[in-house]
Computed example of a mutant assay.
Amino acid sequence: MKHKGHKVPLGGVAEMLRHCDAQWNAYLQRLICNEKEANPLEQYKGHDLRQGLRDRGYIGLSQKQILAKRDVYVSELQAGEPPYSDTELFGTSYVLAN
């Protein structure tokens, strides 16, 4: 699969991290209304996945650091940047029943 110009192997940590990108950005948007919401990505298990989340700057942060990231994201939206979308990850397919 290709996502935002990068080849992503299916079924592994790399694919899961692409889905986590969408969850992270949705979380940043929710923080606009609820600054005290806990980071849902902190719940994920697995060394490789957690390392990938750390490398992306999604976990291991204080609430102050998270709110600063939210502020940057909101500023980008206000400047006209489109909201993050992972729609490229989801193809449309049909299952035909016999």
Rank of each mutant, 00 (worst) to 15 (best):
V74M: 11
A22R: 02
N39P: 05
Y58Q: 10
Q23G: 11
Q51E: 12
V95A: 04
K4D: 14
G91L: 13
K69N: 15
C33F: 10
L41M: 02
L96C: 00
Q78K: 14
N98Y: 07
L31S: 02
N34S: 08
L53P: 04
R50C: 13
R56I: 06
E76I: 01
D48H: 15
V72F: 05
R54V: 10
H3E: 10
Y44A: 07
R50A: 10
E42V: 09
Q23N: 08
G11I: 00
W24R: 03
L49I: 11
D55N: 13
Y73Q: 14
D48T: 14
L41F: 03
G60E: 02
Y27D: 05
I66M: 13
L89Q: 07
Q65N: 03
K2H: 07
E35K: 15
V74Q: 06
I59L: 07
I66P: 11
K36Q: 05
Q65L: 06
V95P: 01
D21H: 06
D21G: 00
R70T: 03
L41N: 02
K7W: 14
G46V: 11
H6K: 14
A68C: 01
K4M: 12
G52A: 04
A97W: 12
I59R: 11
E35G: 09
D71G: 04
A38V: 10
H3M: 12
